[in-house]
Design a protein around this nucleic acid. Structure first.
Lengths: 263, 263
DNA sequence: CGGGGTTTTGAGACCGGTCAAACGCCGTGG
DNA sequence: CCACGGCGTTTGACCGGTCTCAAAACCCCG
Protein backbone atom coordinates (compact mmCIF):
# COMPACT_ATOMS: atom_id res chain seq x y z
CA UNK A 1 0.00 0.00 0.00
CA UNK A 2 2.99 2.27 0.03
CA UNK A 3 2.92 5.05 -2.54
CA UNK A 4 5.00 4.37 -5.60
CA UNK A 5 6.38 7.59 -6.99
CA UNK A 6 9.33 7.15 -9.28
CA UNK A 7 10.34 10.29 -11.08
CA UNK A 8 11.46 9.81 -14.63
CA UNK A 9 13.33 12.53 -16.45
CA UNK A 10 15.04 12.40 -19.79
CA UNK A 11 17.64 14.85 -20.98
CA UNK A 12 14.79 16.69 -22.71
CA UNK A 13 13.41 17.19 -19.28
CA UNK A 14 10.14 18.60 -20.45
CA UNK A 15 7.83 15.93 -21.63
CA UNK A 16 7.87 13.39 -18.87
CA UNK A 17 6.39 13.46 -15.43
CA UNK A 18 6.56 11.09 -12.50
CA UNK A 19 4.69 7.86 -13.07
CA UNK A 20 2.70 5.69 -10.74
CA UNK A 21 0.00 3.08 -11.14
CA UNK A 22 -3.49 4.48 -10.93
CA UNK A 23 -4.97 2.04 -8.48
CA UNK A 24 -3.38 3.83 -5.56
CA UNK A 25 -5.55 6.82 -6.15
CA UNK A 26 -9.22 7.64 -5.72
CA UNK A 27 -10.72 9.51 -8.63
CA UNK A 28 -11.65 12.47 -6.51
CA UNK A 29 -13.51 15.30 -8.13
CA UNK A 30 -14.17 13.43 -11.31
CA UNK A 31 -17.68 12.53 -10.29
CA UNK A 32 -18.81 16.03 -11.11
CA UNK A 33 -18.31 15.34 -14.79
CA UNK A 34 -20.63 12.70 -16.09
CA UNK A 35 -18.43 11.53 -18.91
CA UNK A 36 -15.42 11.45 -16.68
CA UNK A 37 -17.11 9.57 -13.92
CA UNK A 38 -18.29 6.95 -16.37
CA UNK A 39 -14.82 6.46 -17.70
CA UNK A 40 -13.39 6.67 -14.23
CA UNK A 41 -15.60 3.91 -12.88
CA UNK A 42 -14.77 1.58 -15.68
CA UNK A 43 -11.12 2.32 -15.43
CA UNK A 44 -11.27 1.17 -11.87
CA UNK A 45 -13.06 -2.02 -12.84
CA UNK A 46 -10.47 -2.60 -15.49
CA UNK A 47 -7.67 -1.97 -13.08
CA UNK A 48 -8.98 -4.06 -10.21
CA UNK A 49 -9.63 -7.00 -12.51
CA UNK A 50 -5.93 -6.68 -13.23
CA UNK A 51 -6.18 -7.83 -16.82
CA UNK A 52 -3.37 -7.66 -19.33
CA UNK A 53 0.21 -6.73 -18.89
CA UNK A 54 1.70 -3.52 -17.63
CA UNK A 55 0.89 -1.66 -20.81
CA UNK A 56 -2.80 -2.31 -20.40
CA UNK A 57 -3.06 -0.26 -17.24
CA UNK A 58 -4.16 3.34 -17.16
CA UNK A 59 -1.41 5.24 -15.42
CA UNK A 60 -1.61 8.43 -13.46
CA UNK A 61 1.24 10.75 -14.34
CA UNK A 62 2.25 13.93 -12.52
CA UNK A 63 3.52 16.93 -14.42
CA UNK A 64 5.08 20.07 -13.02
CA UNK A 65 4.10 23.49 -14.32
CA UNK A 66 5.89 24.17 -17.58
CA UNK A 67 6.25 20.56 -18.62
CA UNK A 68 4.85 19.35 -21.93
CA UNK A 69 2.37 16.50 -21.90
CA UNK A 70 3.09 15.93 -25.57
CA UNK A 71 4.91 17.85 -28.25
CA UNK A 72 4.03 18.77 -31.78
CA UNK A 73 5.07 16.00 -34.14
CA UNK A 74 5.48 13.31 -31.51
CA UNK A 75 3.92 9.97 -32.39
CA UNK A 76 0.35 9.72 -31.20
CA UNK A 77 -0.44 6.81 -28.97
CA UNK A 78 -2.61 8.00 -26.12
CA UNK A 79 -5.36 10.31 -25.08
CA UNK A 80 -4.93 12.07 -21.76
CA UNK A 81 -7.63 12.60 -19.17
CA UNK A 82 -6.93 15.52 -16.86
CA UNK A 83 -7.49 14.50 -13.27
CA UNK A 84 -6.30 17.71 -11.67
CA UNK A 85 -4.31 20.77 -12.63
CA UNK A 86 -4.44 23.37 -15.32
CA UNK A 87 -2.92 23.43 -18.79
CA UNK A 88 -2.96 25.05 -22.17
CA UNK A 89 -3.17 23.41 -25.57
CA UNK A 90 -1.65 25.27 -28.49
CA UNK A 91 -1.51 25.05 -32.24
CA UNK A 92 1.32 26.39 -34.39
CA UNK A 93 0.80 27.75 -37.87
CA UNK A 94 3.24 27.63 -40.74
CA UNK A 95 5.18 30.61 -39.45
CA UNK A 96 5.53 29.17 -35.97
CA UNK A 97 3.01 31.51 -34.45
CA UNK A 98 1.29 30.16 -31.39
CA UNK A 99 -2.49 29.91 -31.15
CA UNK A 100 -3.96 28.93 -27.79
CA UNK A 101 -6.74 26.43 -28.41
CA UNK A 102 -7.96 25.80 -24.92
CA UNK A 103 -7.14 25.84 -21.25
CA UNK A 104 -7.95 22.25 -20.28
CA UNK A 105 -8.83 21.48 -16.69
CA UNK A 106 -10.00 18.54 -14.65
CA UNK A 107 -12.30 16.37 -16.72
CA UNK A 108 -11.00 17.37 -20.13
CA UNK A 109 -9.46 14.96 -22.57
CA UNK A 110 -6.37 15.97 -24.51
CA UNK A 111 -5.04 14.99 -27.93
CA UNK A 112 -8.36 14.07 -29.53
CA UNK A 113 -7.40 16.19 -32.52
CA UNK A 114 -4.38 13.98 -33.18
CA UNK A 115 -6.36 10.77 -33.36
CA UNK A 116 -6.63 10.62 -37.12
CA UNK A 117 -2.93 11.02 -37.72
CA UNK A 118 0.02 9.13 -36.34
CA UNK A 119 1.52 12.18 -34.74
CA UNK A 120 0.39 15.08 -32.58
CA UNK A 121 -0.93 18.15 -34.35
CA UNK A 122 -0.80 20.36 -31.28
CA UNK A 123 0.94 20.62 -27.94
CA UNK A 124 -0.24 20.52 -24.37
CA UNK A 125 1.68 22.28 -21.62
CA UNK A 126 1.01 22.29 -17.90
CA UNK A 127 0.38 25.78 -16.50
CA UNK A 128 0.14 24.37 -12.99
CA UNK A 129 1.11 21.03 -11.50
CA UNK A 130 -1.09 18.38 -13.02
CA UNK A 131 -2.19 14.84 -12.44
CA UNK A 132 -3.12 13.22 -15.70
CA UNK A 133 -4.44 9.77 -16.57
CA UNK A 134 -2.85 8.36 -19.68
CA UNK A 135 -5.33 6.47 -21.84
CA UNK A 136 -3.46 4.46 -24.46
CA UNK A 137 -5.68 4.60 -27.49
CA UNK A 138 -5.64 0.89 -28.29
CA UNK A 139 -6.50 -0.07 -24.74
CA UNK A 140 -9.26 2.48 -24.55
CA UNK A 141 -10.83 1.11 -27.72
CA UNK A 142 -10.58 -2.43 -26.40
CA UNK A 143 -12.23 -1.36 -23.18
CA UNK A 144 -14.96 0.47 -25.06
CA UNK A 145 -15.83 -2.72 -26.90
CA UNK A 146 -16.42 -4.46 -23.62
CA UNK A 147 -18.50 -1.71 -22.09
CA UNK A 148 -21.15 0.29 -23.81
CA UNK A 149 -20.95 2.94 -21.13
CA UNK A 150 -17.27 3.52 -21.80
CA UNK A 151 -17.96 3.64 -25.50
CA UNK A 152 -20.64 6.27 -25.01
CA UNK A 153 -18.27 8.22 -22.81
CA UNK A 154 -15.55 8.17 -25.46
CA UNK A 155 -17.88 9.38 -28.17
CA UNK A 156 -19.28 11.87 -25.75
CA UNK A 157 -15.86 13.35 -25.17
CA UNK A 158 -15.28 13.74 -28.86
CA UNK A 159 -18.60 15.31 -29.57
CA UNK A 160 -18.46 17.60 -26.60
CA UNK A 161 -15.03 18.83 -27.47
CA UNK A 162 -16.24 19.63 -30.97
CA UNK A 163 -19.17 21.58 -29.61
CA UNK A 164 -16.94 23.55 -27.29
CA UNK A 165 -14.84 24.56 -30.26
CA UNK A 166 -17.93 25.61 -32.14
CA UNK A 167 -19.04 27.83 -29.31
CA UNK A 168 -15.62 29.45 -29.27
CA UNK A 169 -15.82 29.93 -33.01
CA UNK A 170 -19.08 31.72 -32.53
CA UNK A 171 -17.48 33.90 -29.89
CA UNK A 172 -14.55 34.86 -32.08
CA UNK A 173 -16.83 35.49 -34.98
CA UNK A 174 -18.79 38.24 -33.36
CA UNK A 175 -18.46 40.32 -30.28
CA UNK A 176 -16.10 43.04 -29.24
CA UNK A 177 -13.07 42.74 -27.03
CA UNK A 178 -15.00 43.62 -23.88
CA UNK A 179 -17.58 40.91 -24.53
CA UNK A 180 -14.89 38.35 -25.22
CA UNK A 181 -13.06 39.02 -22.00
CA UNK A 182 -16.32 38.99 -20.05
CA UNK A 183 -17.31 35.67 -21.56
CA UNK A 184 -13.86 34.32 -20.81
CA UNK A 185 -14.18 35.24 -17.16
CA UNK A 186 -17.64 33.73 -16.96
CA UNK A 187 -16.36 30.56 -18.56
CA UNK A 188 -13.59 30.24 -16.03
CA UNK A 189 -15.97 31.09 -13.21
CA UNK A 190 -18.41 28.37 -14.24
CA UNK A 191 -15.65 25.90 -14.69
CA UNK A 192 -14.10 26.53 -11.30
CA UNK A 193 -17.50 26.42 -9.67
CA UNK A 194 -18.34 23.03 -11.16
CA UNK A 195 -15.00 21.73 -9.90
CA UNK A 196 -15.84 22.76 -6.36
CA UNK A 197 -13.74 25.90 -6.23
CA UNK A 198 -14.95 29.44 -5.82
CA UNK A 199 -16.58 30.93 -8.88
CA UNK A 200 -16.13 34.46 -7.61
CA UNK A 201 -12.44 34.54 -6.81
CA UNK A 202 -9.73 32.75 -8.67
CA UNK A 203 -6.26 33.04 -10.07
CA UNK A 204 -5.49 33.33 -13.74
CA UNK A 205 -2.72 30.86 -14.31
CA UNK A 206 -2.10 32.05 -17.86
CA UNK A 207 -0.46 35.25 -19.05
CA UNK A 208 -2.28 38.16 -20.65
CA UNK A 209 -0.70 37.16 -23.91
CA UNK A 210 -2.12 33.66 -23.69
CA UNK A 211 -5.55 35.04 -22.89
CA UNK A 212 -5.24 37.31 -25.89
CA UNK A 213 -4.31 34.44 -28.15
CA UNK A 214 -7.25 32.45 -26.86
CA UNK A 215 -9.65 35.34 -27.42
CA UNK A 216 -8.22 36.59 -30.67
CA UNK A 217 -7.14 40.00 -29.35
CA UNK A 218 -3.81 41.56 -28.34
CA UNK A 219 -2.45 41.39 -24.83
CA UNK A 220 -2.68 45.16 -24.42
CA UNK A 221 -6.36 45.01 -25.20
CA UNK A 222 -6.85 42.27 -22.63
CA UNK A 223 -5.13 44.44 -20.06
CA UNK A 224 -7.15 47.50 -21.02
CA UNK A 225 -10.46 45.68 -20.79
CA UNK A 226 -9.59 44.20 -17.43
CA UNK A 227 -8.62 47.64 -16.16
CA UNK A 228 -11.83 49.08 -17.52
CA UNK A 229 -13.96 46.40 -15.87
CA UNK A 230 -12.02 46.97 -12.70
CA UNK A 231 -12.74 50.72 -12.74
CA UNK A 232 -16.43 50.18 -13.39
CA UNK A 233 -16.48 47.85 -10.41
CA UNK A 234 -17.72 44.71 -12.16
CA UNK A 235 -14.56 42.87 -11.22
CA UNK A 236 -11.48 43.41 -9.12
CA UNK A 237 -8.14 42.75 -10.72
CA UNK A 238 -4.82 42.56 -8.99
CA UNK A 239 -2.24 41.01 -11.25
CA UNK A 240 -3.40 37.43 -11.73
CA UNK A 241 -5.97 37.51 -8.94
CA UNK A 242 -9.52 38.03 -10.18
CA UNK A 243 -12.67 38.67 -8.17
CA UNK A 244 -16.05 38.89 -9.84
CA UNK A 245 -18.25 41.45 -8.12
CA UNK A 246 -21.27 41.68 -10.39
CA UNK A 247 -21.72 38.51 -12.38
CA UNK A 248 -25.06 39.56 -13.87
CA UNK A 249 -23.58 42.74 -15.27
CA UNK A 250 -20.81 40.66 -16.82
CA UNK A 251 -23.38 38.45 -18.50
CA UNK A 252 -25.07 41.52 -19.92
CA UNK A 253 -21.91 42.50 -21.73
CA UNK A 254 -22.54 39.74 -24.27
CA UNK A 255 -22.43 41.19 -27.72
CA UNK A 256 -25.83 42.46 -28.75
CA UNK A 257 -25.49 42.21 -32.48
CA UNK A 258 -24.78 39.96 -35.35
CA UNK A 259 -26.01 39.73 -38.87
CA UNK A 260 -29.16 38.05 -39.96
CA UNK A 261 -28.31 36.37 -43.24
CA UNK A 262 -32.04 36.39 -43.75
CA UNK A 263 -33.27 33.45 -45.77
CA UNK B 1 -34.70 -2.71 -60.60
CA UNK B 2 -36.90 0.30 -61.14
CA UNK B 3 -35.88 3.41 -59.31
CA UNK B 4 -37.74 3.99 -56.10
CA UNK B 5 -38.16 7.68 -55.49
CA UNK B 6 -40.95 8.48 -53.09
CA UNK B 7 -41.00 12.07 -51.98
CA UNK B 8 -41.95 12.60 -48.37
CA UNK B 9 -43.05 15.99 -47.17
CA UNK B 10 -44.49 16.97 -43.83
CA UNK B 11 -46.41 20.15 -43.22
CA UNK B 12 -43.10 21.63 -42.08
CA UNK B 13 -41.91 20.96 -45.56
CA UNK B 14 -38.30 21.68 -44.88
CA UNK B 15 -36.60 18.79 -43.22
CA UNK B 16 -37.31 15.84 -45.42
CA UNK B 17 -36.03 14.91 -48.81
CA UNK B 18 -36.84 12.12 -51.16
CA UNK B 19 -35.75 8.72 -49.93
CA UNK B 20 -34.45 5.73 -51.75
CA UNK B 21 -32.41 2.69 -50.86
CA UNK B 22 -28.72 3.18 -51.37
CA UNK B 23 -27.99 0.03 -53.30
CA UNK B 24 -29.32 1.58 -56.45
CA UNK B 25 -26.47 4.01 -56.48
CA UNK B 26 -22.74 3.80 -57.04
CA UNK B 27 -20.70 5.72 -54.51
CA UNK B 28 -19.21 7.96 -57.12
CA UNK B 29 -16.73 10.57 -56.02
CA UNK B 30 -16.30 9.17 -52.56
CA UNK B 31 -13.09 7.41 -53.42
CA UNK B 32 -11.20 10.66 -53.34
CA UNK B 33 -11.65 10.85 -49.59
CA UNK B 34 -9.90 8.08 -47.77
CA UNK B 35 -12.17 8.05 -44.77
CA UNK B 36 -15.22 8.23 -46.90
CA UNK B 37 -14.11 5.51 -49.23
CA UNK B 38 -13.48 3.22 -46.29
CA UNK B 39 -16.91 3.82 -44.94
CA UNK B 40 -18.37 3.69 -48.41
CA UNK B 41 -16.88 0.28 -49.15
CA UNK B 42 -18.14 -1.18 -45.94
CA UNK B 43 -21.53 0.29 -46.42
CA UNK B 44 -21.73 -1.55 -49.69
CA UNK B 45 -20.70 -4.82 -48.06
CA UNK B 46 -23.28 -4.21 -45.41
CA UNK B 47 -25.93 -3.47 -47.97
CA UNK B 48 -25.22 -6.32 -50.35
CA UNK B 49 -25.15 -8.85 -47.54
CA UNK B 50 -28.63 -7.56 -46.89
CA UNK B 51 -28.49 -8.03 -43.15
CA UNK B 52 -31.01 -6.70 -40.73
CA UNK B 53 -34.36 -5.12 -41.29
CA UNK B 54 -35.14 -1.96 -43.19
CA UNK B 55 -33.83 0.24 -40.40
CA UNK B 56 -30.39 -1.29 -40.67
CA UNK B 57 -29.86 0.01 -44.15
CA UNK B 58 -28.00 3.20 -44.95
CA UNK B 59 -30.29 5.26 -47.08
CA UNK B 60 -29.45 7.87 -49.63
CA UNK B 61 -31.67 10.91 -49.30
CA UNK B 62 -32.01 13.78 -51.76
CA UNK B 63 -32.49 17.32 -50.54
CA UNK B 64 -33.33 20.38 -52.59
CA UNK B 65 -31.56 23.66 -52.03
CA UNK B 66 -33.02 25.39 -49.01
CA UNK B 67 -34.16 22.26 -47.22
CA UNK B 68 -32.95 21.49 -43.73
CA UNK B 69 -31.20 18.19 -43.12
CA UNK B 70 -31.90 18.57 -39.43
CA UNK B 71 -33.15 21.37 -37.23
CA UNK B 72 -31.96 22.76 -33.95
CA UNK B 73 -33.52 20.83 -31.09
CA UNK B 74 -34.63 17.84 -33.11
CA UNK B 75 -33.85 14.46 -31.54
CA UNK B 76 -30.47 13.18 -32.60
CA UNK B 77 -30.43 9.77 -34.16
CA UNK B 78 -28.13 9.82 -37.17
CA UNK B 79 -24.98 11.17 -38.62
CA UNK B 80 -25.11 12.26 -42.24
CA UNK B 81 -22.45 11.63 -44.84
CA UNK B 82 -22.53 14.09 -47.70
CA UNK B 83 -22.36 12.25 -51.01
CA UNK B 84 -22.84 15.24 -53.27
CA UNK B 85 -24.01 18.81 -53.00
CA UNK B 86 -23.23 21.82 -50.91
CA UNK B 87 -24.59 22.93 -47.54
CA UNK B 88 -24.04 25.17 -44.56
CA UNK B 89 -24.09 24.24 -40.91
CA UNK B 90 -25.05 26.96 -38.46
CA UNK B 91 -25.11 27.55 -34.74
CA UNK B 92 -27.50 29.90 -32.96
CA UNK B 93 -26.56 31.79 -29.83
CA UNK B 94 -28.87 32.80 -27.01
CA UNK B 95 -30.10 35.82 -28.92
CA UNK B 96 -30.88 33.84 -32.03
CA UNK B 97 -27.95 35.17 -33.99
CA UNK B 98 -26.68 32.89 -36.67
CA UNK B 99 -23.07 31.71 -36.81
CA UNK B 100 -21.99 29.77 -39.86
CA UNK B 101 -19.84 26.87 -38.70
CA UNK B 102 -18.91 25.29 -41.98
CA UNK B 103 -19.83 24.76 -45.59
CA UNK B 104 -19.88 20.96 -45.78
CA UNK B 105 -19.32 19.30 -49.13
CA UNK B 106 -18.95 15.81 -50.48
CA UNK B 107 -17.14 13.64 -47.96
CA UNK B 108 -18.03 15.60 -44.85
CA UNK B 109 -20.00 14.15 -41.98
CA UNK B 110 -22.72 16.22 -40.34
CA UNK B 111 -24.12 16.28 -36.82
CA UNK B 112 -21.05 14.98 -35.00
CA UNK B 113 -21.39 17.82 -32.54
CA UNK B 114 -24.81 16.56 -31.49
CA UNK B 115 -23.64 13.09 -30.64
CA UNK B 116 -23.25 13.64 -26.93
CA UNK B 117 -26.75 14.98 -26.46
CA UNK B 118 -30.11 13.59 -27.44
CA UNK B 119 -30.94 16.52 -29.67
CA UNK B 120 -29.25 18.57 -32.36
CA UNK B 121 -27.18 21.56 -31.26
CA UNK B 122 -26.90 23.04 -34.71
CA UNK B 123 -28.64 23.01 -38.06
CA UNK B 124 -27.64 21.91 -41.53
CA UNK B 125 -29.20 23.47 -44.59
CA UNK B 126 -28.69 22.56 -48.22
CA UNK B 127 -27.34 25.44 -50.33
CA UNK B 128 -27.54 23.33 -53.45
CA UNK B 129 -29.29 20.08 -54.23
CA UNK B 130 -27.70 17.35 -52.14
CA UNK B 131 -27.47 13.62 -51.97
CA UNK B 132 -26.80 12.53 -48.43
CA UNK B 133 -26.28 9.13 -46.85
CA UNK B 134 -28.05 8.78 -43.54
CA UNK B 135 -25.98 6.88 -41.00
CA UNK B 136 -28.18 5.90 -38.06
CA UNK B 137 -25.89 6.16 -35.07
CA UNK B 138 -26.73 2.79 -33.56
CA UNK B 139 -26.24 0.97 -36.82
CA UNK B 140 -22.98 2.73 -37.46
CA UNK B 141 -21.66 1.69 -34.05
CA UNK B 142 -22.75 -1.89 -34.66
CA UNK B 143 -21.00 -1.87 -37.99
CA UNK B 144 -17.87 -0.40 -36.50
CA UNK B 145 -17.68 -3.27 -34.02
CA UNK B 146 -17.63 -5.72 -36.88
CA UNK B 147 -15.02 -3.88 -38.89
CA UNK B 148 -11.93 -2.23 -37.58
CA UNK B 149 -11.62 -0.23 -40.75
CA UNK B 150 -15.03 1.32 -40.26
CA UNK B 151 -14.19 2.04 -36.66
CA UNK B 152 -11.02 3.82 -37.66
CA UNK B 153 -12.93 5.77 -40.26
CA UNK B 154 -15.48 6.90 -37.69
CA UNK B 155 -12.86 8.05 -35.25
CA UNK B 156 -10.99 9.62 -38.11
CA UNK B 157 -14.01 11.70 -39.03
CA UNK B 158 -14.37 12.95 -35.51
CA UNK B 159 -10.77 13.84 -35.06
CA UNK B 160 -10.45 15.43 -38.45
CA UNK B 161 -13.50 17.56 -37.91
CA UNK B 162 -12.03 18.76 -34.65
CA UNK B 163 -8.77 19.66 -36.30
CA UNK B 164 -10.54 21.58 -39.03
CA UNK B 165 -12.29 23.62 -36.39
CA UNK B 166 -8.99 24.31 -34.68
CA UNK B 167 -7.46 25.59 -37.88
CA UNK B 168 -10.43 27.90 -38.36
CA UNK B 169 -10.07 29.09 -34.78
CA UNK B 170 -6.48 29.94 -35.49
CA UNK B 171 -7.55 31.84 -38.60
CA UNK B 172 -10.17 33.89 -36.78
CA UNK B 173 -7.77 34.60 -33.98
CA UNK B 174 -5.27 36.43 -36.10
CA UNK B 175 -5.22 37.83 -39.58
CA UNK B 176 -6.93 40.73 -41.24
CA UNK B 177 -10.01 40.64 -43.39
CA UNK B 178 -8.06 40.39 -46.62
CA UNK B 179 -6.12 37.36 -45.39
CA UNK B 180 -9.29 35.67 -44.22
CA UNK B 181 -11.04 36.07 -47.54
CA UNK B 182 -7.93 34.90 -49.39
CA UNK B 183 -7.68 31.82 -47.23
CA UNK B 184 -11.36 31.17 -47.71
CA UNK B 185 -10.99 31.25 -51.47
CA UNK B 186 -7.97 28.97 -51.32
CA UNK B 187 -9.87 26.57 -49.11
CA UNK B 188 -12.75 26.39 -51.56
CA UNK B 189 -10.36 26.07 -54.46
CA UNK B 190 -8.55 23.14 -52.86
CA UNK B 191 -11.78 21.50 -51.95
CA UNK B 192 -13.29 21.78 -55.40
CA UNK B 193 -10.06 20.55 -56.93
CA UNK B 194 -9.97 17.45 -54.77
CA UNK B 195 -13.55 16.73 -55.76
CA UNK B 196 -12.63 16.79 -59.41
CA UNK B 197 -13.97 20.24 -60.22
CA UNK B 198 -12.00 23.24 -61.35
CA UNK B 199 -9.97 24.90 -58.66
CA UNK B 200 -9.64 28.10 -60.63
CA UNK B 201 -13.23 28.87 -61.47
CA UNK B 202 -16.19 28.16 -59.31
CA UNK B 203 -19.45 29.52 -58.02
CA UNK B 204 -20.02 30.74 -54.50
CA UNK B 205 -23.25 29.14 -53.46
CA UNK B 206 -23.46 31.13 -50.25
CA UNK B 207 -24.28 34.81 -49.76
CA UNK B 208 -21.77 37.49 -48.78
CA UNK B 209 -23.42 37.56 -45.40
CA UNK B 210 -22.85 33.86 -44.87
CA UNK B 211 -19.23 34.22 -45.91
CA UNK B 212 -18.90 37.06 -43.43
CA UNK B 213 -20.37 35.00 -40.65
CA UNK B 214 -18.03 32.17 -41.48
CA UNK B 215 -15.01 34.47 -41.51
CA UNK B 216 -15.96 36.66 -38.58
CA UNK B 217 -16.29 39.87 -40.59
CA UNK B 218 -19.20 41.90 -41.92
CA UNK B 219 -20.72 41.35 -45.32
CA UNK B 220 -19.66 44.80 -46.52
CA UNK B 221 -16.07 43.98 -45.69
CA UNK B 222 -16.31 40.74 -47.64
CA UNK B 223 -17.57 42.67 -50.62
CA UNK B 224 -14.89 45.32 -50.30
CA UNK B 225 -12.09 42.78 -50.09
CA UNK B 226 -13.40 40.88 -53.10
CA UNK B 227 -13.59 44.12 -55.06
CA UNK B 228 -10.09 45.02 -53.99
CA UNK B 229 -8.71 41.62 -55.04
CA UNK B 230 -10.58 41.99 -58.28
CA UNK B 231 -9.04 45.39 -59.01
CA UNK B 232 -5.55 44.17 -58.23
CA UNK B 233 -6.14 41.33 -60.65
CA UNK B 234 -5.56 38.42 -58.28
CA UNK B 235 -9.09 37.19 -58.85
CA UNK B 236 -12.05 37.99 -61.05
CA UNK B 237 -15.38 38.46 -59.37
CA UNK B 238 -18.71 38.69 -61.05
CA UNK B 239 -21.47 38.27 -58.48
CA UNK B 240 -21.16 34.69 -57.31
CA UNK B 241 -18.75 33.63 -60.04
CA UNK B 242 -15.14 33.54 -58.91
CA UNK B 243 -12.01 33.02 -60.98
CA UNK B 244 -8.61 32.78 -59.37
CA UNK B 245 -5.96 34.39 -61.55
CA UNK B 246 -2.89 34.35 -59.34
CA UNK B 247 -3.08 31.63 -56.75
CA UNK B 248 0.45 32.18 -55.48
CA UNK B 249 -0.21 35.83 -54.78
CA UNK B 250 -3.31 34.80 -52.86
CA UNK B 251 -1.26 32.45 -50.73
CA UNK B 252 1.15 35.27 -49.94
CA UNK B 253 -1.63 37.30 -48.38
CA UNK B 254 -1.50 35.05 -45.33
CA UNK B 255 -1.29 37.12 -42.20
CA UNK B 256 2.28 37.86 -41.28
CA UNK B 257 2.04 38.43 -37.57
CA UNK B 258 0.98 37.03 -34.27
CA UNK B 259 2.25 37.25 -30.73
CA UNK B 260 4.92 35.15 -29.18
CA UNK B 261 3.75 34.43 -25.64
CA UNK B 262 7.38 33.62 -25.02
CA UNK B 263 7.85 31.02 -22.33
C1' DC C 1 -40.89 47.10 -67.11
C1' DG C 2 -40.96 47.23 -62.27
C1' DG C 3 -40.02 45.23 -57.32
C1' DG C 4 -37.54 42.73 -53.74
C1' DG C 5 -33.42 41.12 -52.32
C1' DT C 6 -28.54 41.06 -52.67
C1' DT C 7 -24.35 43.40 -53.66
C1' DT C 8 -21.54 47.35 -54.21
C1' DT C 9 -19.79 51.74 -52.91
C1' DG C 10 -19.30 55.79 -50.01
C1' DA C 11 -18.41 58.78 -45.74
C1' DG C 12 -17.69 58.99 -40.96
C1' DA C 13 -16.97 57.21 -36.26
C1' DC C 14 -14.92 54.07 -33.30
C1' DC C 15 -12.47 50.21 -31.86
C1' DG C 16 -8.43 47.78 -31.56
C1' DG C 17 -3.58 47.39 -33.24
C1' DT C 18 0.95 49.29 -32.99
C1' DC C 19 4.81 51.44 -30.92
C1' DA C 20 6.78 53.15 -26.86
C1' DA C 21 7.53 54.21 -22.13
C1' DA C 22 6.76 53.54 -17.20
C1' DC C 23 5.47 50.57 -13.57
C1' DG C 24 5.38 46.51 -10.57
C1' DC C 25 6.73 41.87 -9.30
C1' DC C 26 10.41 38.73 -8.31
C1' DG C 27 14.62 36.27 -8.37
C1' DT C 28 19.65 37.04 -8.47
C1' DG C 29 23.78 38.56 -6.83
C1' DG C 30 26.52 41.79 -4.52
C1' DC D 1 19.77 43.37 3.41
C1' DC D 2 19.31 46.11 -0.60
C1' DA D 3 20.39 47.09 -5.58
C1' DC D 4 19.95 45.46 -9.89
C1' DG D 5 17.93 43.54 -14.00
C1' DG D 6 14.48 40.76 -16.46
C1' DC D 7 9.93 39.93 -17.48
C1' DG D 8 5.11 40.63 -17.50
C1' DT D 9 1.76 44.20 -17.00
C1' DT D 10 -0.17 48.71 -17.34
C1' DT D 11 -0.96 53.01 -19.56
C1' DG D 12 -0.56 56.48 -23.18
C1' DA D 13 -0.67 58.47 -28.00
C1' DC D 14 -1.37 57.67 -32.60
C1' DC D 15 -2.85 55.38 -36.72
C1' DG D 16 -5.17 52.16 -39.57
C1' DG D 17 -8.76 48.92 -40.37
C1' DT D 18 -13.32 47.49 -39.68
C1' DC D 19 -18.00 48.56 -38.40
C1' DT D 20 -21.94 51.41 -38.98
C1' DC D 21 -25.29 53.79 -41.46
C1' DA D 22 -26.89 55.01 -45.83
C1' DA D 23 -27.67 55.22 -50.65
C1' DA D 24 -27.03 53.60 -55.16
C1' DA D 25 -26.33 49.76 -58.44
C1' DC D 26 -27.23 45.29 -59.80
C1' DC D 27 -29.49 40.73 -60.33
C1' DC D 28 -33.26 37.67 -60.74
C1' DC D 29 -38.06 36.94 -61.28
C1' DG D 30 -42.26 37.48 -62.59
Amino acid sequence: MSSINSSIYTDRGVNHGSVRPAFNRPLGKLKLWSHVSEIGDFLRVQLSSNLGDQDDRFQHINYKAGQHIYLLGQPFESLYLVNSGFLKSVLYDDLGNEQVLDFPMSGDVLAIDSLHTNYHNSEAIALADCNIIKLPYRNLIKLSHRSEQVERAVFGFFSKELMNQQIRLSLLGKSKAEARVAQFLLLLSNRFLSLGYSGNEFNLRMSRCEIGSYLGIKLETVSRVLSSLNESGLISVRQKKIAINDIDALRNLQSPSSSHCSH
